[in-house]
Amino acid sequence: MKKRLYLELENCIGCRSCLAACTQCGGHEQRNRNYVYDVNPFVNRQTMPLMCLHCVNPACARSCPAQAIQIHETGAVLSALVEKCIGCQNCTIACPYGIPKFDTEQNLMYKCDMCIDRSKDGIPPMCASVCPSNTIQWLSDEEIEAKQRQFNLNNGKWVTSMPYLEGETNVKVNLPGILQGVTKLF
């Protein structure tokens, strides 16, 4: 059963375990590829992770003059191929979320590849595996639909980016606020 990365930003506790774990997938050479932001640090402790959303029609790949950014059959948008990347950094500007990172020493772009060696076999990426708060989850489409039903707001609107933020993405994101729609037990 195909699974996707699903983010429930409200849950994030800012532990950065997703960053620490990113280096552990084997193909990532001890460099993490995602981000965690303090949303409003002077006011409260809300944080949120941001990783590549694996766009269906990725701006990064489109902007690449060397076709260095490949799209895996699972939909994962891969890190730049060493032999093709010319280091122009177009992708870092093209991505609407500022995801691709650049290694100036190697003159090479690197980004989240959804831990492709894990996810191609249905094994969750490292960030989703370790996230202690279930901010980052690895779910089937049915499970994601159930989430969508569960977090329906009283006002009839979704507090969610579903189906997508800018363009359609393979990763599904739920913005803070999901709890507003929950009916209390008593």
């Binding site: 708060s133 569960q150 209390k184």
Partner: peptide, 21 residues
């Protein structure tokens, strides 16, 4: 809890997700 025993948190949040307090 979120900083000192973080891996309890997915259970804690689930109580609220179910409508618990």
């Amino acid at each position: 809890t979120a900083e000192c025993h973080p891996t309890s948190m997915f259970r804690v949040w689930h109580v609220q997700e179910r409508g618990g307090y």
